[in-house]
């Protein structure tokens, strides 16, 4: 599973990254988490506001920090 955190590096982006890491750890899921800071790649996803979280190419949230519980739910759906 590939999880991407889209954002240019603001604290909210970092927080979302932390929560994604915690969610993966809690589930013991096999997932690669990467940060995407390149504005062109972010725009390619159609994301107009950051932070955003993408799982296997699907944007799950944009413009806010989702809760760890939400991230866990999305990961479980993709398993």
């Amino acid at each position: 599973m590939k999880i991407e955190i889209l954002g240019t590096g603001c604290p909210k982006c970092k927080k979302l990254h932390e929560l994604a890491e915690e969610a993966v750890k809690e589930l013991g899921a096999s997932a690669e988490i990467t940060k995407v800071t390149d504005i062109n790649k972010i725009i390619d996803y159609g994301v107009m506001v950051t932070p955003a979280l993408v799982i296997d190419g699907e944007v799950k949230v944009a413009g806010k920090i989702s809760s760890k519980e939400e991230i866990i739910k999305w990961i479980e759906e993709k398993k």
Binding site: Y45, G46, V47, M48, V49, A52, V54, E58, V59, K60, V61, A62, G63, K64
Partner: peptide, 23 residues
């Protein structure tokens, strides 16, 4: 404002849909 793609929303491209919901 920022112009964005209506066709992408119609095609349910997730990034555009989530951006619309968050705008």
């Amino acid at each position: 404002g920022n112009m964005t793609c209506l066709a992408s929303v119609g095609a349910h491209i997730s990034g555009f849909v989530e951006s619309a919901k968050r705008a």
